[in-house]
């Protein structure tokens, strides 16, 4: 299996679950020009991110191209226990997608 584009760290801190995620993605806005050819580099960015815990959505994000290259996302939610899992998936404007599940520590 290809290596996932998503890295997740989920940890119980002061009773809540803190999730940190890093996604490998160019996040091209569509406004940048290729310096050599002068042609615009086509837009290619993550538009939707969904984070679930026990099948329930805990965070749903809509993004534009101005989220930095290799996006970072962190959030906190209640009601999770050590050993349970969180899943993060993304979908980009060209139909690309990925998903990753990690155990809560």
């Amino acid at each position: 299996m290809a290596k996932s584009s998503i890295k997740i760290r989920a940890k119980i801190k002061k009773g809540a679950c803190e999730v940190k995620a890093l996604m490998k993605h160019p996040m091209e806005t569509g406004q940048r020009k290729n310096k050599k050819t002068g042609k615009k580099i086509p837009a290619h960015f993550i538009q939707e991110v969904n984070c679930t815990h026990n099948g329930q959505s805990v965070l749903a994000a809509e993004w534009g191209g101005a989220i930095s290259t290799n996006p970072y996302l962190s959030f906190i939610f209640d009601g999770a226990k050590k050993g349970e899992s969180v899943t993060i998936s993304w979908l980009d404007n060209q139909g690309g997608k990925d998903s990753m599940t990690a155990k809560i520590k």
Partner: peptide
Amino acid sequence: LIANFKMGKSTHAFVSTRIK
């Protein structure tokens, strides 16, 4: 507009990310 984050019922009203 850079991003919009929708919180689940147990999610804290907090988000951290990086922008251009």
